[in-house]
Design a protein around this nucleic acid. Structure first.
Length: 438
RNA sequence: GGAAAGUUGCCGGAGUGGUCGAACGGGGCGGACUCGAAAUCCGCUAUACGGCUUGCUGUAUCGGGGGUUCGAAUCCCUCACUUUCCGCCA
């Protein structure tokens, strides 16, 4: 959530930012936050004074009792009783204001950075780079030329998966349900190879590998913002009140919940491979065909915790890392800078990576790399102590997929299909142990 | 699943109703000594929120929540977690 300091001190900027994000009722939301905060502060000021007075009485009563001055002590007790009633009421006011404030702040999204383009929806996203062609300033998804087909009829990955016996979707339905495919033979080996490849690349780039739990408690869900809003998107084990993680971001980022780091430790660079579980309630149609959208999938996530001064640099490094992966995999890609309206609730700036699937004739999102500024850290209470003046400050948090497997697999199958089988990209061969799927 | 013991600051660990944000030790930071270091000595050493003259000051916090009391780390209730033993188990 946004800090109250930002809202009160830079109200205009916050309102403008929220409007850029196409958040309805920006001005009203900000005013409401300020009003609730005023109530909260008033209540606390009065409460503090009341408690201070009753503490003075309590100390005095102690002395009177020792001195044996019973009558005076009783009189003081009567005073305290009055103060106590006042304090209880103020306490309630304060608690209510605090609860209301937190709840309200949670409904206000992060504000975008200046370099985030204006725009309401996906077609306004700016294409900043592509392996297929030069990008000019102002290129948006909406005016992007269609990618020319090269004439050959290509099979979609779900047909290739069947043809080469790599992925059994029906078996997954039998064992679990739709969206839980069973990988078989070279299909399974390809999964393992990609996981190892992505982890090795992250490790080379200086990320410390984490293998976290795949199930988290509610506190962690709140920490990264999956709860309370996206409750319905996570699998929930009711008996133990635990949640299956939708991404490694949740357990890894929560390592730093309620922590004060030393500036010397920053930037923290972690990577983690986990299975990810998403209910994807409400998804339907061709988007969910084959590997396009699954309930369980493998993903390697990179997470950074950084200082405000250095986080933009970190973000750049992360983008370069992800781009490098796509280049090594020889996949046709483009990088989008998301516009204000299409950005996620919590990000300050976000880039999406997409690979082109010729067989499906569409771009598949394989990664988004975001800087959350202090938005996520504020809720997590992830702070650091500045070396310079020893002051405690909120960190910046960043994360990105590097990468999620299913759509990468889809793209590899579809883009590298030949008459003789499916060619494995060179960089991956040392991990698969084979060069072709045939 | 059964039984027991625990949860105190950065760490270890005292504290069973008042002056306790909390002894003592360790660590860390600053200073003295030293050419420098070690040892020794001295001082400092949490966070959040609030008020006003930005330096002071108030309040809260001893696992979470509630209660008793003029007053709670300390007593009571409740929840969570951890550890140990037994059982089961990859």
């Amino acid at each position: 959530m946004l800090t109250l300091k930002l809202i009160t001190e830079e109200t205009e900027r916050v309102i403008k930012g929220l409007q850029k994000k196409h958040f309805k009722g920006a001005e009203g939301a900000v005013e409401k936050a300020i009003a609730i905060d005023k109530m909260r502060r008033d209540a606390q000021t009065k409460l503090d004074a009341t408690l201070a007075e009753s503490k003075r009485y309590a100390a005095e009563i102690g002395k009177l009792m020792k001195a044996g001055q019973k009558a005076e002590a009783e009189a003081a007790k009567a005073e305290v009783a009055k103060l106590k009633a006042t304090a209880a009421a103020l306490e309630q006011q304060k608690a209510e204001a605090e609860t209301a404030l937190t709840a309200h702040l949670c409904t206000i999204p992060n504000i975008p950075y200046d370099e985030v383009p204006e725009g309401a929806a996906a077609e306004d996203n700016v294409v900043v780079k592509s392996s297929l062609r030069e990008c000019k300033p102002g290129d948006t998804v909406g005016n992007w030329d269609t990618v020319p087909a090269n004439g050959e009829a290509k099979l979609p990955h779900w047909e290739l998966a069947k043809k080469y016996n790599l992925i059994d979707f029906d078996l997954g339905v039998k064992i679990t349900g739709a969206g839980f495919p069973v990988y078989v033979g070279k299909g399974a080996q390809l999964q393992r190879a990609l996981i190892n490849f992505f982890l090795a690349e992250a490790s080379k780039a200086g990320y410390t590998e984490i293998m976290p739990p795949t199930v988290v408690n509610a506190a962690s869900g709140y920490g990264t913002g999956q709860l309370p809003d996206k409750e319905g998107q996570m699998y929930h084990c009711e008996v133990d009140d635990l949640y299956l993680i939708p991404t490694a971001e949740v357990p890894v980022t929560n390592i730093y919940r309620d922590v004060i780091l030393d500036e010397k430790q920053l930037p923290i660079k972690n990577c983690a491979y986990t299975q990810c579980f998403r209910r994807e309630a409400g998804s339907y149609g061709k988007d969910v065909r084959g590997l396009n959208r699954l309930h369980e999938f493998s993903k390697i996530e990179i997470v950074r915790i950084d200082t405000p001064e250095h986080s933009a640099e970190s973000h750049k490094e992360m983008l370069n890392h992800v781009e490098g992966l796509l280049q090594k995999l020889e996949l046709p890609y483009r990088i989008l800078r998301l516009c204000g309206g299409d950005q996620s609730f919590t990000s300050a700036i976000c880039y999406d990576f997409e690979v082109y699937s010729e067989a499906q004739g569409r771009w598949l999102e394989v990664s988004s790399v975001s800087n959350f500024d202090t938005y996520q850290a504020n809720r997590l209470k992830c702070r650091y102590r500045r070396s310079e003046d020893k002051k405690v400050q909120l960190c910046h948090t960043l994360n990105g997929s590097a990468l999620a497997l299913p759509r990468i697999v889809a793209a590899i199958l579809e883009n590298f299909q030949t008459a003789d089988g499916i060619r494995i990209p060179k960089a991956l061969q040392q991990y698969t142990g084979f060069e072709m799927i045939d």
